[in-house]
Computed example of a mutant assay.
Amino acid sequence: MPPQVTNVQQREWLFIPALPGLEPAVAAEAEALGLSPRRVEGGVELEGGPGLHQEANLRLRTASRVWLRLGRFPAPDAAALARGLAALPLRPVWDGRSVPRLSVVLHGARFKGPDAVLAAAARAWGLPSVERAGLLDEEPGEGLTLLVRVEGDTCTVSADTSGEPLHRRGYRQEVSRAPLRETLAAGILVLAGYDGVAPLVDPMCGSGTFLIEGAWMSQQRAPGLARPFAFERFPGFDAGAWAACRARAEAQALPAPRAVLRGHDLNAGSLGTARRNARRAGVTLTLERQDVRTLTLPAGLGPGWVVANPPYGKRVGEGEDLPGLYRALGATLRRAFVGWRAAVLVPEEPGLIRALALPGARELPVRNGGLRCRLLLCAL
């Protein structure tokens, strides 16, 4: 008897992973889209009708990737695992000819390691072998990438529908010395409560990621409009439905941001990079070379949101007096941004957080490029 596989194709079931600390932002985005997210470890789960994975890829700004659940079944041993894999409804996502890639996660499973899962998959699908995929955030292959997650005696199999990680929007072909992922920048704006209407200022803007993400939020532009996705290569892909989905998103986007977006940086090269990235993103930013220590704003601007990702000293080769830079940034925020709301991403170092001296700041743990950080949120 074949195992009883729970088929989730009639109603799509998605797992949306997020960078550590951004799970609440993904949930908030999904709720704003009229969905009902369920918070789980590492992200959120969504359930909906056919095409939900396309909408999620197209519209979620803070998600890292979109996994489409293909099935869940008991797998107490390798034989049961192979039977369950053979019964999966793979036809909508796999042509049966290419060699799929598998990412394997084992939690308390009765297997010696991922190789046993790969061997079971090869037997189940009549293949000489199955390619091993690396970490889930690595570059995907051209073919199908599956996530096989075994927890205890239960196996859940999901298909990657995104392809390149979702922070690849298509506009950022140049980066500054310490790049910030687009998904992290958008997540920080969501967690800060940015409304897309009030001014947004970045006093240390680098390559302009905060400002471009803020501009697209203000413009109500879907972040995935300018890039391809893995689901477009699925055998069951409906090009007409996808074209209609994209057309709806394009029609909802405003012709220009509603907010004033200003960026400052002492490095002229960074401002040039920000200007070119903004041009590729189709937005216009006000960029001006100013030192954060002496920064001033035009009369009558604000209040709004001020957001910053100051140097950490680990990558950009700043001077030894990093606390001095943080003290100067904090002084500028308290002087020039009275009545504004602030969001500052800093490394998890108490000395630097004290140097900023932001009044009543709430601290949220996040990660930036694998570094433990704190997002400081406060009213100035």
Rank of each mutant, 00 (worst) to 15 (best):
residue 201 V to P: 14
residue 223 P to L: 09
residue 222 A to T: 00
residue 365 P to L: 01
residue 313 G to D: 05
residue 260 V to C: 13
residue 30 A to L: 06
residue 102 L to A: 04
residue 125 W to T: 10
residue 277 N to F: 06
residue 47 E to Q: 04
residue 237 F to L: 05
residue 33 L to P: 06
residue 165 P to K: 11
residue 7 N to P: 08
residue 270 S to W: 10
residue 266 L to C: 04
residue 190 V to N: 00
residue 169 R to H: 12
residue 110 R to M: 12
residue 39 R to Y: 12
residue 129 S to H: 12
residue 377 L to P: 08
residue 144 L to R: 00
residue 88 L to E: 04
residue 166 L to N: 02
residue 145 T to N: 11
residue 246 R to N: 04
residue 232 E to Q: 11
residue 218 S to E: 15
residue 274 A to E: 05
residue 372 R to G: 15
residue 70 L to E: 05
residue 87 A to L: 09
residue 292 V to Q: 09
residue 338 V to E: 13
residue 22 L to P: 07
residue 51 G to A: 02
residue 285 L to N: 15
residue 141 G to M: 10
residue 43 G to D: 02
residue 338 V to F: 04
residue 365 P to C: 03
residue 84 G to Y: 05
residue 75 A to L: 12
residue 287 L to V: 00
residue 295 L to H: 00
residue 143 G to M: 14
residue 13 W to L: 07
residue 178 A to Q: 09
residue 120 A to R: 06
residue 64 S to R: 12
residue 313 G to I: 15
residue 291 D to Q: 04
residue 95 D to Q: 05
residue 231 F to N: 00
residue 223 P to E: 04
residue 226 A to P: 01
residue 298 P to I: 01
residue 188 I to E: 07
residue 4 Q to E: 15
residue 360 G to C: 09
residue 345 L to R: 01
residue 269 G to R: 08
residue 45 E to H: 00
residue 69 R to N: 12
residue 22 L to E: 10
residue 205 C to R: 09
residue 341 R to D: 03
residue 347 P to M: 01
residue 308 A to E: 01
residue 161 T to I: 08
residue 309 N to F: 01
residue 166 L to I: 14
residue 294 T to D: 15
residue 91 R to Q: 10
residue 292 V to T: 03
residue 18 A to P: 08
residue 372 R to Y: 14
residue 67 W to N: 08
residue 28 A to N: 11
residue 185 A to F: 03
residue 130 V to C: 01
residue 39 R to A: 15
residue 346 V to S: 10
residue 290 Q to W: 13
residue 315 R to A: 14
residue 35 L to Y: 15
residue 203 P to L: 08
residue 272 G to H: 03
residue 179 P to V: 11
residue 31 E to M: 14
residue 207 S to M: 00
residue 44 V to H: 14
residue 240 G to D: 14
residue 330 G to W: 01
residue 364 L to F: 04
residue 293 R to A: 03
residue 140 P to Y: 13
residue 369 G to I: 14
residue 25 A to P: 10
residue 165 P to C: 11
residue 307 V to S: 02
residue 124 A to L: 05
residue 21 G to T: 07
residue 246 R to L: 06
residue 334 R to P: 02
residue 11 R to Y: 10
residue 42 G to R: 13
residue 37 P to D: 09
residue 337 F to M: 04
residue 132 R to T: 11
residue 147 L to Y: 03
residue 341 R to C: 02
residue 58 L to P: 08
residue 365 P to F: 00
residue 293 R to E: 02
residue 257 P to D: 05
residue 339 G to I: 00
residue 375 L to R: 10
residue 78 A to C: 12
residue 190 V to M: 00
residue 83 R to L: 10
residue 37 P to K: 05
residue 118 L to G: 02
residue 342 A to Y: 00
residue 7 N to E: 05
residue 169 R to F: 12
residue 326 Y to T: 04
residue 62 T to A: 09
residue 117 V to N: 02
residue 86 A to D: 05
residue 234 F to W: 07
residue 58 L to K: 03
residue 216 W to M: 15
residue 299 A to C: 07
residue 128 P to E: 02
residue 215 A to K: 13
residue 318 E to W: 07
residue 340 W to H: 04
residue 178 A to H: 07
residue 215 A to H: 05
residue 213 E to T: 14
residue 36 S to N: 15
residue 8 V to H: 15
residue 358 L to M: 11
residue 187 G to L: 14
